[in-house]
Amino acid sequence: MIRVGLVGEDPNDTASIKHLLEKKYSNKVKFLPLARRIRGDQLESAKLRKSLPIEFTENKCSFVIYIRDLDAFESQSAKVQERKRWFKSLDSVINNKGILLLNIWELEALILGDIDTFNSIYKINHKFSSNPMLQDKPKELLKRITSHTNKQYKEAHCPELFKLLDIDKIEKSCLCFKNFIADFEKKLKKP
């Protein structure tokens, strides 16, 4: 088993991606959250820079997946560069052993990539046939379309929700995730 660390900007995000990737890779990869209870701006903290090498070594990881939301579209290059700078800087503390999963706008865009599963869980029938990478604030959209249903979408639902999503569908509809999977598979072959 290859041991792969996960660092995300929210424990829910990290757990969600862990569950999603496990659907396809659980037979050969063990995913290990490394920066537990770290969230938001703490990803830039000196404390994480110091603790990450310990977690990386103690958990015997081959490499790390960093999960971040862009909070913008991919065309907003200044934001993209800002995230990439952060990734390179933090990754340097473990000798550049990581890859970045940069969610375009935010994690919830991946849910839009498999809207059928979301519809069946929340018992709605929302039509979404456009490109999830072009949807701004997808979290707000999910909240809005479930606002009048018995079960309203909350970020805290994500870890369980991602267990049910179809990873192949998401890969097809979300370019950021497709590119990430390509990087990930390369990394698995040559950690």
């Binding site: 920066a35 537990r36 770290i38 110091k50 603790s51 090498p53 310990i54 103690e58």
Partner: peptide
């Protein structure tokens, strides 16, 4: 023994034992 070793690393390289409790897998 492994947790004590890791806790000591946190105390030396990150800051405090509480950093280990809060950031790592002590109670997982």
């Amino acid at each position: 023994t492994t947790e004590i070793k890791k806790a000591k690393k946190y105390m030396k390289e990150v800051g405090f034992f509480s950093d280990y409790w809060m950031l790592s897998d002590l109670e997982e």
